[in-house]
């Protein structure tokens, strides 16, 4: 049986300002099981970062509870923090000191047994021997990301919170970083809470996604199930024949469509209607040269939420 590594209940955060009270996180509840990789998604201002900050104890909660490994985070903060770790593109290590010195400091902070051996094992694992004596601020963005990962693994965490760990990295380094995360997840059975704006990353890394919007959870499911909720798809047909005849057919079927080239039409339809439309077009005497079905992605789901197309009342 999988245990809950993290359980959040009715978490709320209100901020007061001269403009009034603003609810950044509005009564959210979710849990993460051991070995899960959960994507935490939402448009800017959805409340992701505030939630992560509350989960790490660097922002106070207004109400609600957080439990790590069955323990109340507010009562057993040090014990909980000892078993988790955090990495982010926005938080770096101390730039003035060397990589080795940084890692020694954090290994001591986490009370790691045999810190030098532990650091060397991780350094070797990440092929970062040449970086050890370099000042942290002299490293490239990709190298910093690697060292941040090493720092986040020093205490053998059971859960890692990753806040946009690949932000501002070039595509090659992003790919390597994601491969690394996948490897860590598989080999160490790590539990991951991963925030990103990049839907492809989330689809690649996560087996579960939590969507936040305006501080509320609007959906939580697997990436595949979420995309299935959209239902609509785009059917792109390259044809040879009478364009007018095709348009008449599409109007008759009451579909929305657009011609992106003279002989290429993109039809917005429901996934289930695609076979019927292809059959109908063929039957009306138009020769279909090529068919491309563009299924909805997590990004489409994200866009629907961002544009208000999915209500809070949809299935959680």
């Amino acid at each position: 049986m999988q245990n809950n590594v993290l359980e959040v209940k009715n978490l709320t955060k209100n901020f007061r300002s001269s403009a009034g009270e603003f609810t950044a996180v509005d009564n959210i509840s979710f849990s993460i099981k051991q070995g899960d990789a959960v994507g935490f998604l939402g448009p800017n201002g959805a409340g992701k970062t505030t939630t992560i900050q509350m989960l790490l104890g660097i922002t106070n909660v207004t109400s609600g509870s957080i439990q790590y490994f069955g323990k109340d985070f507010f009562k057993h903060k040090q014990q909980c923090l000892q078993r988790i770790n955090f990495t982010s593109a926005f938080n770096t290590l101390q730039g003035r000191i060397s990589v080795w010195e940084n890692l020694i400091v954090f290994a001591t902070l986490y009370n790691v047994k045999n810190p030098k051996e532990k650091i060397m094992n991780l350094i070797n694992y990440f092929n970062s021997e040449s970086l050890l004596n370099q000042r942290y601020w002299n490293l490239s963005a990709g190298q910093k990301t690697r060292i941040n990962f090493i720092k986040s693994l020093l205490n053998d965490p059971e859960l890692i919170l990753m806040d946009e760990p690949t932000a501002s990295l070039d595509p090659d380094v992003v790919d390597k970083t994601l491969s690394l995360i996948e490897e860590l997840k598989d080999k160490r059975n790590l539990t991951i809470l991963y925030t990103s704006h990049n839907m492809n990353e989330i689809t690649r890394i996560c087996n579960k996604v939590i969507f936040l919007d305006h501080g509320q959870i609007v959906a939580q499911d697997s990436p595949l199930s979420l995309t299935k909720r959209i239902g609509s798809a785009k059917l792109q047909i390259t044809f040879d024949g009478d364009k007018e005849k095709l348009e008449n057919y599409l109007k008759e079927k009451r579909t929305t469509y657009s011609f992106i080239k003279k002989y290429i039409v993109v039809i917005n339809t429901q996934e289930k209607d695609i076979p019927g439309i292809i059959f109908g077009i063929s039957k009306s005497g138009i020769w279909i040269a090529d068919i491309e079905v563009k299924k909805p992605t997590l990004e489409d789901f994200f866009l629907q939420i961002a544009r208000g197309g999915i209500s809070v009342n949809s299935k959680n």
């Binding site: 790490l56 101390q94 003035r96 954090f106 902070l109 986490y110």
Partner: peptide, 16 residues
């Protein structure tokens, strides 16, 4: 020094 290096949060999300 830690705020300028964006490292203060890293330290306080450790069990410090």
């Amino acid at each position: 020094w830690n705020i300028w290096s964006r490292n203060l949060s890293n330290m306080f999300v450790a069990p410090l």
